[in-house]
Nucleic acid binder design. Structure first.
Length: 270
DNA sequence: CGCGACTCCTGCCGGC
DNA sequence: TGCCGGCAGGAGTCGC
C-alpha cells in the first residue's frame, strides 16, 4: 500500500493528533514485524511527549523523549488514530495510547513494516545510505544522469533504488516512466541527460500531485485521519497490463523487471 | 563490486 | 464450491 505519497499523507494526518500529546501506554500485541519491536520501547516513550512528526523516505520519524520512534509501513502497513478502547482486530499489532483519549494504531497483515527506536543524535543504519528526497533541490535530472553512469540495469529498477533517490516505488516508477515516454526496460546508463531531466520532472510532478490528492487508493488506503486517497482512475499504466493505453489506444505491455511487474506502452515509451 | 534473486508474511484472485 | 498457484504497494541480504 504505502508509497511515498501515502506515507506523507499519513504523516500529515497523524501529526496534529500526536504533537504535544503524552503517551500514557504502549500496547504491543505482536512484536514480530520485519524486525522485532524493541523490548524497551515502552520505557522509552511512556510518559513522554511527542514533539515533531517527520518523514524521511518512506520512514516516519516520531520525535519523543530521548529519541525517535521510527516506523516503516512495508507493503501492507497502516497507521491511524482510534479512540482508546476500540477493540483490536486481527493484524492490529500496536497501540500507542495518548493522554487525549486517542491511540495511534499500527496495522500490518504482512508484517513487512517496522517499528524501531533510535536515540537523539544517532542515525539509524537503515537511514544512513538513503539518497535525496525526490521533492528536494538535491534531486534533479543531473543527479539521475550522474548516478546512471556505468549502470547496466534497466532504468525502472534504477529509479527505484533508494541510494539514487528515495520514495519511488513500483506505482510511481511505472507512471513517471510512462509520462516521460521512456521504456522501463532501457539500460540506465544509456539514457541521455535530456531524457533524465524529463524523467526527474515527471517523478516530481506525479509525486507532488499524488500527495496533493492524498495518496493513491489501491485497495483500502486511508490517510491517518481516515480520509480516503484518490482513485486508480488517474493511473495510466500501473495495474493496467493488457488494457488500452489512454494516450494512443494500443494494448499495454507487461514484463518483469527486478522481480516487479512493469506495465508500459510500446508505442508511447521508447 | 554491481546486479539479480531470494526472503520475510498474509490475503486475494483467477483457474481448474 | 473448494483447493492451489501466483501475485501484491518494500527493501534488506546474500551469492554469483
Amino acid at each position: 500500500m504505502p508509497e511515498l505519497p501515502e506515507v506523507e499523507t499519513t504523516r500529515r494526518g497523524i501529526a496534529p493528533h500526536l504533537e504535544g500529546r503524552t503517551v500514557t501506554q504502549l500496547i504491543v500485541r505482536e512484536r514480530r514485524l520485519r524486525w522485532p519491536i524493541p523490548e524497551d520501547l515502552a520505557i522509552q516513550i511512556e510518559g513522554q511527549t511527542f514533539t515533531q512528526i517527520r518523514r524521511r523516505a518512506k520512514y516516519l520519524l516520531m520525535d519523543i523523549g530521548g529519541g525517535s520512534l521510527i516506523s516503516h509501513l512495508g507493503m501492507s502497513g497502516n497507521l491511524r488514530l482510534v479512540s482508546v478502547g476500540t477493540p483490536a482486530l486481527k493484524h492490529e499489532h500496536v497501540d500507542i495510547e495518548l493522554d487525549s483519549g486517542m491511540a495511534l494504531r499500527y496495522t500490518d497483515p504482512r508484517r513487512f513494516g517496522s517499528m524501531l527506536w533510535i536515540k537523539t543524535g544517532e542515525v539509524h543504519p537503515l537511514l544512513s545510505r538513503l539518497g535525496p528526497e525526490p521533492l528536494s533541490d538535491l534531486f534533479d535530472g543531473e543527479r539521475l544522469y550522474q548516478c546512471a553512469r556505468g549502470k547496466t540495469s534497466a532504468v525502472k529498477p534504477f529509479i527505484m533504488d533508494n541510494a539514487v533517490v528515495v520514495g519511488v516505488g513500483n506505482i510511481y516508477a511505472s507512471e513517471a516512466l510512462f509520462a516521460a515516454g521512456i521504456d522501463p526496460r532501457r539500460e540506465a546508463g544509456r539514457i541521455s541527460r535530456t531524457r533524465y531531466q524529463r524523467l526527474a520532472t515527471e517523478i516530481q510532478r506525479i509525486l507532488a500531485h499524488a500527495i496533493e490528492r492524498g495518496g493513491t487508493t489501491l485497495r483500502d488506503f486511508t490517510g491517518g485521519d481516515g480520509q480516503p486517497g484518490y482513485f486508480q482512475q488517474e493511473l495510466f499504466v500501473y495495474g493496467r497490463g493488457g488494457e488500452l493505453c489512454k494516450l494512443c489506444g494500443g494494448t499495454l505491455s507487461e514484463c518483469r523487471l527486478g522481480q516487479r511487474s512493469s506495465v508500459f506502452c510500446r508505442r508511447c515509451q521508447s
